[in-house]
Nucleic acid binder design. Structure first.
Length: 529
RNA sequence: GGGCCGGUAGCACAGUCUGGAUAGUGCGGUGGGCUUCGGACUCACAGGUCAGGGGUUCAAAUCCCCUCCGGCUCGCCA
């Protein structure tokens, strides 16, 4: 498909003199892809757009593509034969480079909320998308398990928590208690700083308490990863880079890449804010560990690309970090894959104010709602039910434009309309047809407009996939899934598959394509629903 | 105050990069479709000053400028 598009673009460029990189195609509505180039050119020359479109259409000779001049537009239609060929090679991609994607990266001692979900789900989806495209992808979980807040936590533990910390909720209570008490007892902050310094110096007691917190938190995270089917994340915890960060800062200072400023160590940047690496009290801050980690990643994996799936609120941090990386001599392209922040109708989420939605509750609600829709339908296993619940949650999160802020409502676990279960339902249907009527047989000669429309939509997958990868936007795949589902449902409504080999064949292609698309969202297809 | 992002139907959103064909989709509302290859489906209708104003253009939701509203951010947190 891309090859055909590229060929058309090349010929168009040759015949018009417009550089290839200025030729863009719209896709979908008219033909398989289309261009408004004739209108632009005709305008410049004062010619008639439609005549120009027809003239250009005659000049484009790409096998498998029919060009038509329509209302001043150039619309390109794949021939039936080309459509079939593409349907049979929807997933052939060559080998690409290596990349490292930083995603999920929750903070320990804090509950997993719907806010943390986005990085995990978007990152996982990107990992799958790039893997399909032939990239070697390393997913890194930069778990937030270091920093001043652990000094606070240890302080709180010493005062109120002895021996009674069994889960994240307990840790969080300690954290909240500390903040409340610190308002009237400024000494606590000092104590916390002291404990953090001890921790960073490897003090036995501090480390053992910290270790306990860490272990309990990770246990809880693991539960979610299992449930969400996240299994390719490598542990790249922040704490692993403490020593490296300390050494790095010293080294950068000696080499005068970093400099002292108001008692702290910083790297100057193009903005008026420097990249702060070490505080006045001599302890490092997370930027130093981020930097050390990034350097480690480039040495360890030799990647062509570094991706960081982290929220909008850290845009400035990554701008500074990437500048710092360059100054350290790392020239690997690095991108901040920012995503929109989740808030509640009442306002910003705040765990401390109890204004937060926990992931656990969302999954439970989804599970509950699947049950409501399911009624007492038979043949739906426990496993299938979870696939639907998870499908609803993941799809709801992935379908909005990546960078857009989202307001959480319980619509997230809806089961009808533009939802995961809607797509899953169509996929199950298509699969059932395959089970019942077999593989069918390809025969495009029997195609009518209905078949063509469906085939076009399926073939469109490749362009959407490439777009989604290029823009790092899983939501584009989600959109494609919705349109494909709608197209298939429409087809299903009008055309009987039974007794028609070529239609059964097409239904098989639908089942494959939808399953693949859902897989890229991290969503499984249930056997029954 | 500076920087970045957003404002499209009652609600949630796509479309903005790269101006162009009738501004789309879902939820909610109203009214239809089961002699079913699975109704978590489907069809139709109602619903729009594309925040407001100005500009560029044959053509603006889309590009430029101004204003208003909301979010994020602006070194010793992560």
């Amino acid at each position: 498909m891309e090859k055909l598009v590229a060929d058309v673009r090349g010929q168009l460029a040759r015949h018009t003199g417009v550089p290839e990189e200025q030729i863009f195609f719209d896709s979908g509505r008219f033909g398989d892809f289309s261009s408004m180039l004739p209108i632009r050119l005709a305008k410049a020359k004062g010619a008639d757009p439609q005549q120009m479109a027809v003239g250009l259409a005659e000049k484009i000779k790409v096998s498998g593509v029919e060009a038509r001049g329509e209302q001043g537009f150039l619309n390109f239609y794949l021939t039936d034969k080309a459509l079939v060929h593409n349907l049979e090679h929807l997933e052939d991609f060559g080998q690409k480079g290596t990349m490292v994607i930083d995603y999920s990266s929750p903070n320990i001692a804090k509950p997993f909320s719907v806010g943390h979900l986005r990085s995990t789900i978007i990152g996982e989806s990107l990992r799958r998308i790039f893997t399909l495209l032939g990239w070697k992808v390393h997913g890194i979980n930069f778990i937030g398990d270091w920093g001043t807040q652990f000094g606070k936590l240890i302080t709180a533990y010493q005062i109120w928590g002895k021996g009674e910390v069994n889960g994240i909720k307990d840790m969080f209570d300690l954290y909240v208690k500390f903040h409340v008490a610190a308002e009237t007892e400024p000494k606590l902050e000092e104590l916390a700083r002291e404990w953090f310094r001890k921790l960073e110096e490897g003090d036995e007691e501090a480390v053992s308490i910290w270790d306990k917190f860490r272990e309990k938190s990770l246990e809880e995270f693991q539960k979610f990863y299992h449930k969400l089917d996240i299994s390719h994340l490598e542990d790249g915890s922040e704490s692993k880079f403490v020593k490296k960060a300390v050494e790095l800062v010293d080294d950068l200072w000696q080499r005068e890449v970093a400099e002292e400023d108001q008692g702290a160590i910083v790297i100057k940047t193009s903005t008026d804010v420097p990249l702060l690496l070490r505080k006045q009290d001599g302890t490092t801050i997370y930027a130093a560990r981020d930097l050390a980690s990034a350097i480690w990643r480039t040495q360890q994996f030799r990647p062509d690309l570094l991706l960081y799936v982290v929220g909008n609120d850290q845009k400035l941090h990554f701008k500074l970090l990437f500048e710092g990386l360059k100054k350290c001599g790392i020239n690997t392209p690095a991108e901040h894959i920012n995503f929109g922040m989740v808030s509640l109708p009442e306002g910003k989420m705040s765990t401390r104010k109890g204004r937060v939605v926990f992931l656990e509750d969302v999954l439970e609600e989804a599970w509950h709602r699947v049950g409501e829709v399911m009624g007492n339908r038979e043949g739906v296993s426990e496993e299938d039910r979870w696939k639907l619940a998870i499908g609803a949650v993941k799809f709801a999160d992935l379908k909005t434009h990546r960078t857009r802020d989202v307001i959480f409502t319980w619509d997230m676990v809806r089961m009808e309309g533009e939802t995961g279960p809607y797509v899953q339902y169509a996929t199950v249907r298509a699969k059932r047809i395959a089970e019942k009527f077999g593989k069918g047989k390809v025969n495009e000669k029997e195609w009518g407009d209905e078949e063509r429309k469906l085939a076009r939509q399926l073939v469109n997958f490749r362009m959407n996939l490439l777009d989604a990868a290029a823009q790092r936007r899983p939501d584009l795949i989600a959109k494609w899934l919705l349109v494909t589902t709608k197209t298939f449902n429409d087809y299903y409504e009008r055309c009987r598959m039974e007794g028609s080999e070529h239609r059964v064949w097409l239904a098989n292609r639908v089942a494959e394509a939808l399953s693949r698309g859902l897989n890229l969202m991290g969503i499984d297809v249930p056997a029954r629903m």
